[in-house]
Amino acid sequence: MAAKKHRIRISKDECKGCRRCIPACPKKLISVGKEINIQGYLAVVAENPFDCIGCGSCFHQCPEPGAITIFEIEE
């Protein structure tokens, strides 16, 4: 069975830009974005969301309930 694939989704407007998720990601997928969001924060982005390995570290580091969602992809 092939390794499962995952996707990370960062909800830009729910991010408060605290950056706790950035060092948490073992794949270094998350970085500071360029856009100020609706709340006035510089939100983080994941440039390559399908490179996510689904470990959940960033989700648990994130203080917001729904700013980060990790999906498991079933082929």
């Binding site: 648990h60 994130c62 203080p63 309930p65």
Partner: peptide, 18 residues
């Protein structure tokens, strides 16, 4: 704002709430 908690950025309350 109805999607976020009221806590400051990086606050531990949100982590523990989750």
């Amino acid at each position: 704002i109805k999607t976020n908690m009221h806590y400051c950025p990086g606050c531990g309350h949100g982590i523990l709430h989750k």
